[in-house]
Design a protein around this nucleic acid. Structure first.
Lengths: 392, 392
DNA sequence: AAGCTAAATATATTGCCTGAACAATTATGG
DNA sequence: CCATAATTGTTCAGGCAATATATTTAGCTT
């Protein structure tokens, strides 16, 4: 019915093959023509042609110095040309826009984080324009710290604590973020020419966790991002779940669904446990106190931990019943202390679900969302590499 | 890391373009060269070349009789060649393997159902071999009713009431189906050369409902298949959710998760409501009586209906929180009577979730799984059309 | 019958991959 | 130290598939 994308012209072949070649080079430090032949199935002639293309476009680089070290097998024959990713051909931004603080991180095309910066908002209810100003400032600082500038940015991933649909839009009716998203993208586009990819923070956390967290390489992964609120980021078969309006994983109402009063739900417990809302610092102290008291044998503290464990187990079991992930990762402000709860949660799970997932705690700490935002931006850049223009 | 599929050779272009052309012809009754040009973006020359290719392979047919009727615009110019799908170039099977009964349906490439047959198992605990015999017999009968034969079958979709992973495998450890799946596929492959695509029945129901049910065209759709058990089939962004081991949507444990004793959960209520397990006939009678009594004002019956509505609403709300579908369809044995509950359920939903989906009842009745199985098989055939050999 | 128009065909050109022949460069073994 | 084997790089004809442009065809109009 719809006018299909575009006809498959001979150029498409080059695009596809170049993607394959570039993808392999990205994954392997240095690549030789022969290696590329083996992994892409292309002829040597084609591989070389593609590589020259990629060099011309700036995505890869040829290593001149045929290094003396040739470890392992002392190979005969003419030495191979060696290609590597030009990891500084461009950079991506990963932005975490929280309720109280915004953090930006800059990474190169390999994903190495080169600069970071953050700033707290003056108040919780500042207007959108001011919020955008802060985001812009934080990004510029991070870029400066990374030793690069706005013109080198190929894409920016940004996470907010609201439902974001597949196209990066926020339901205007739902949150005050609704006004924010369009403005943010427009502003950064106009100021710097950036493409901003907006996503839900828990979804980004899932991407980050699969990339460089405890869910490395797991394709069916759920991340519970517990902090000011409880949100889930869901990867199924390696793809993010959004649902109709981006609200997949939004379980703000779940306490009620679980038949528990809101004063007793996960969110409330977490809040009560890590002190009343707001900043992370104060909260951590309070959480630590509970854990310390529990360790000392305080019965009240132990009871709180038990209830938290059971609540967590129930939430995870519900996720397991609907999504059936291989692994569930607990991340966010709560993660730091959640390790102690793992044995209890794991032990409870089989009572609530037939398919208990592995449960772990995120090692990424505060960087979980920015990490995912970087990965999100890199995914975009990698998928569109041959359409993007490198400004060197 | 993995040896990538295959190099993109010029042939790929033809494959891609042929897919596009065939896809459009499939969707449009009769197509002209000009129409194909518009919708694929190809040149006329290419379109014609592709069409001749497809004719040679047997997938499409050229209409000779340039019919007198040329409605609407009495067009000038040379009359266009007209192509149509050769819908009888092959057939697909849709099989519903229930606990008590197996049903098979045969459809042509347009999805028109041409034959149907079903048979009940002698007993619930017959060995796998006998079960496979029944399936085979039912299929052959359906093919005969459709006026075709086993050699014309391009693929068979089959649904069972157990978790099936993305590759069509059943977890051996989990159900007695675990032994069944391999045997079934091997047997039908050997007997007839069929490719059998095994899937979870609720997943197939979702495909069927989106194809020809009340969820037509909805990409984020959940089907609750309520009968002997309660299972959910989830489509997100048009794709089936499986999870790690195919257990996505398996909420057998949900009554416990919901904090309700198993004697009071949805499954039990449904069972109690539609009489004790087993056949559909007896169950329906009992369900009807409850509804009749409720209509007559019987307070006990009304109370049951209220509890069912609330349970349903809670389940749907939980689905909504995690998956955020646009629509939830109630299907299976319960569907027939569920219409009365819809207003109540819909009214309750906003209390339990911030993103209440539209809720409807399936119009497909008993055919919901076979319909989905047909769609599943057609999806496979359409995706692999150019690799399949038509035996004419 | 002449003219118009949209569709089909014919021909030349281009992009991209393959395959085979040929050239280059190193390790190894006498 | 030189010949040989092994490995990689380079070049060029050949084929497939798409585009672009010009030419022909088939039906309708007047």
């Amino acid at each position: 019915m719809k006018p299909t994308a575009g006809a498959a012209t001979p150029r498409l072949l080059r695009r596809v093959n170049a993607q394959a070649v570039l993808g392999f080079i990205r994954s392997t430090d240095v690549a030789t023509g022969t290696g590329l032949m083996a992994h892409t199935g292309l002829t040597r002639a084609s591989v070389i042609a593609v590589c020259e293309d990629l060099i011309r476009r700036g995505w890869i680089r040829e290593l001149e110095a045929r290094d003396e070290e040739r470890p392992g097998n002392p190979r005969k024959g003419r030495p191979a040309r060696r290609f590597e990713l030009n990891s500084r051909a461009g950079f991506v931004l990963g932005i975490d826009i929280g309720a109280a603080t915004t953090t930006a991180a800059v990474a190169d095309l390999r994903g190495s984080v080169l600069g970071r910066s953050s700033e707290s908002f003056r108040a919780a209810d500042i207007p959108a324009a001011e919020r955008i100003d802060v985001v812009d400032r934080v990004c510029r600082q991070a870029l400066e710290a990374a030793g690069t500038d706005a013109r080198q940015v190929l894409a920016a991933g940004a996470g907010i604590a609201a439902p974001v649909d597949r196209d990066g839009n926020v339901l205007v009716t739902q949150h005050f973020w609704g006004l924010f998203d369009v403005g943010l993208r427009a502003a950064l586009k106009e100021l710097h020419g950036w493409t901003v990819l907006l996503e839900n923070d828990a979804n980004l956390a899932a991407l980050g966790e699969r990339w460089r967290g405890s869910g490395a390489g797991v394709d069916d992964l759920v991340v519970l991002l517990a902090g000011e609120r409880l949100g889930a980021g869901v990867l199924e078969s390696g793809r993010l779940l959004h649902g109709r309006s981006g609200a997949a994983g939004e379980m703000g109402y779940l306490d009620m669904v679980e038949g528990v009063g809101s004063s007793d739900g996960i969110a409330s417990l977490a809040r009560q446990w890590s002190a009343a809302g707001g900043g992370a610092a104060g909260g951590t102290v309070s959480a630590r106190r509970v854990f310390a008291d529990a360790a000392a044998g305080d019965p009240a503290a132990l009871a709180i931990l038990d209830r938290i464990s059971e609540r967590m187990a129930r939430v995870i079991a519900t996720v397991a019943s609907f999504i059936n992930p291989e692994q569930v990762v607990i991340g966010g402000a709560v993660a730091e202390s959640a390790g102690v709860l793992l044995p209890g949660i794991t032990a409870l799970l089989p009572r609530f679900t037939a398919t208990p997932p592995r449960v772990t705690v995120s090692p990424l700490g505060d960087a979980i969302v920015t990490m995912g935002a970087i990965r999100h931006a890199l995914d975009y850049v990698e998928a569109n590499a041959l359409e993007l223009e490198l400004r060197g």
